[in-house]
Amino acid sequence: MGWPEGYGRRVMAEVDSTNAEAARIVGGLGGPEWICALNQTAARGRRGRVWIAPAGNFAATLVMRPRETAAVVALRSFVAALALYDALAALTGAEAALALKWPNDVLLNGGKVAGILLEGLPNGGLAVGIGVNLIAAPPAEQVEAGAVRPVSLLEETGVRVSPEQMLDALAAAWAMREDSFVTYGFAAMREAWLTRAARLGEVITARTARDSVTGTFETVDAQGQLVLNTAQGRVTIAAADVFF
């Protein structure tokens, strides 16, 4: 697949963070643009956490100006997850080893190989930040206690993928998933995501800023929220970290 029509492509030797660069350029955008950095000096994950990204791993942000409501725009985390799944499967042939972890992670052989960070930008912009452990994963002691172990694509599959190869595959996969999302809405995207969901039907724990909820992972609803079946009944969770 070639580079998708209508998307800009910018590969930088070094930047503080691709999401920060997205904020700087969003005002002058003529259309969506991918920013890929071969080195980041101040990478961030969800909730302001440090994202450890050694040289050779993948760090990129798609910057765009969507026109939908904030609630619909936020559903692009599912677009990103499915595009990542598609791209990694195409590059490695390891589709059966991949799974999607609510809300924003991609798993490979049960370990976290990729993460997604959506951020709102000025001028109605959106940054879809994506990090993939292509060649190395951070040590387990550097991640939150109880979190899924980090893994790398190279270690788990033996396939060496360059950041530029990852970018090209991801951009093509995103364009296809984005077209489907805009044309058909979230319902089809939700069904596709659920068929790839990690631990669906199993007991998991969701930790919010205020409390912790344990229950059976029942589904993701039409708003993209996690639905757990707990001892106290059905609970819907809009934002949380999930632990297995």
Rank of each mutant, 00 (worst) to 15 (best):
M1R: 13
M1A: 15
W3A: 08
P4N: 08
G6M: 09
R9Y: 05
V11C: 04
M12Q: 13
E14Q: 14
V15K: 01
V15F: 05
D16T: 13
S17F: 01
E21Q: 13
I25H: 02
V26S: 00
L29V: 04
G31A: 15
P32Q: 06
E33C: 15
E33R: 11
C36Y: 02
L38P: 00
A42F: 11
V50Q: 14
A53C: 13
A53W: 03
P54L: 06
P54F: 02
N57V: 06
N57R: 02
F58N: 04
A60N: 00
T61D: 08
E68Q: 14
A71Y: 05
A71N: 09
V73C: 09
R76T: 09
S77W: 06
S77T: 15
V79L: 09
A80W: 04
A80G: 09
L82P: 13
A83R: 07
Y85M: 10
L88A: 01
A89W: 06
G93D: 10
A97S: 12
L98R: 07
L98Q: 03
L100W: 01
P103L: 11
P103R: 04
D105V: 04
D105C: 03
L107P: 08
L108N: 04
G110L: 02
G110F: 02
K112F: 00
L117W: 00
L118R: 07
L118I: 05
L118C: 02
G120M: 10
G120N: 13
L121I: 09
P122A: 05
G125N: 02
A127T: 00
I130L: 10
N133T: 05
I135F: 07
P139Y: 03
E141P: 05
Q142K: 14
E144Q: 13
E144D: 12
A145T: 13
A147G: 11
V148K: 09
V148H: 11
L154N: 02
V159S: 07
R160L: 13
S162W: 10
P163Q: 09
Q165Y: 01
M166T: 01
D168V: 14
A169V: 02
L170F: 07
D179E: 14
D179R: 15
S180W: 12
T183F: 06
Y184A: 15
G185Y: 00
F186L: 07
R190M: 03
E191C: 08
W193M: 10
A198G: 05
A198S: 11
R199C: 15
L200I: 08
V203Y: 10
R210M: 14
S212V: 15
V213N: 05
G215I: 00
G215D: 03
F217A: 01
F217C: 08
E218M: 12
E218W: 11
V220Q: 00
D221M: 06
G224M: 04
L226Y: 01
A231L: 13
A231W: 05
A231S: 14
A231M: 09
G233E: 04
G233Q: 03
A238G: 12
D241M: 08
F243G: 01
